[in-house]
Amino acid sequence: MKIALITDLHANAQAFSAVLEHAQANGATDYALLGDFVGYGGDPGWVLNKVMELVAAGAVAVRGNHDVAVTQGTAPNMREEARKAVEWTHARLDSRQLAFLSELPLTVSREDRLFVHANAYDPAGWDYIQGRIEAMRSLHATQARFTFCGHMHEPMLYHLSGTGKAGEFTPAADVTIPLLPNRQWLVIPGSCGQPRDGNPAACYALFDSISAELSFQRVPYDVEAAAASIRAAGLPERLALRLLQGE
């Protein structure tokens, strides 16, 4: 079974649509949606409706910090442009969509896999996995062989051996990586809706649960249209520029 791992959609309909089309063309039979479906982008309703449709068909979905902010209010430390996007988004979602966001779990466990937005050690604290220290803390917090998480907008792969040896890997696109059985793995697919590694192409990953093989993917999409949607919504110009620049 090939699982498409998609995270940090951020109301980017163009990126999400392109990723779904790419995943289907490459044999995806299931989907894991790792949170932050809203915020920043100009099409929260469309994105949420598509997420809800996939969940109804059996996809995994977990809650991200922007999803919480839209339903519960922004945190004091949220940046002004993000706060404006959250407030704008809340006013444009209907009660059904808001209820869906508020009822999403923080984590989902299936067999040897853990799905979470931020990390395994404190899912509601929203700490970022910025390097090996946080990654190892997350891996030590779970017995799952595979942890899949978002929150960080750049693709990354970490592993922990049975002897406690840690490693990290910045992946290249479309390269098959065997996830060896004597290790725990932490997979960060990178952001679908707002990549931040200088490449505006949407990120996601494909995981084969039978062969335990992983590939990170980059999907070009109509970034100009996504930026235009942000501008048409009256959201901060900086949010449109970040998409165009991949930051």
Rank of each mutant, 00 (worst) to 15 (best):
K2Q: 13
I6A: 11
N12G: 01
A13I: 05
A13Y: 01
A18Q: 06
H22N: 03
A25Y: 00
G27T: 10
T29D: 13
D30G: 13
Y31G: 10
Y31V: 06
G35T: 14
G35H: 10
G39S: 06
G45Q: 04
V47P: 01
V47S: 01
M52Y: 04
E53L: 09
E53D: 10
A61K: 04
H66L: 00
V68Y: 10
V70L: 03
V70S: 10
T71G: 03
E81A: 15
R83C: 07
A85N: 00
W88H: 05
T89L: 11
S95V: 15
L98T: 12
E103C: 15
L104T: 06
L104Q: 09
T107H: 00
R110K: 05
L114Y: 02
V116S: 05
H117R: 00
H117D: 12
G125F: 06
G125P: 05
M136T: 15
L139V: 09
Q143I: 13
R145D: 08
M152D: 15
E154M: 11
M156Y: 13
G167I: 04
E168F: 08
A173W: 14
D174E: 11
V175M: 04
W185N: 05
W185Q: 02
L186A: 03
I188E: 09
I188P: 03
S191D: 06
G193F: 08
G193A: 13
G198S: 09
A205N: 08
F207G: 15
S209L: 11
S209H: 07
S211R: 12
S211V: 11
L214K: 06
Q217I: 04
R218G: 14
P220D: 02
Y221M: 01
V223L: 08
A232V: 00
G234M: 00
P236E: 05
L243E: 06
L244H: 00
E247K: 12
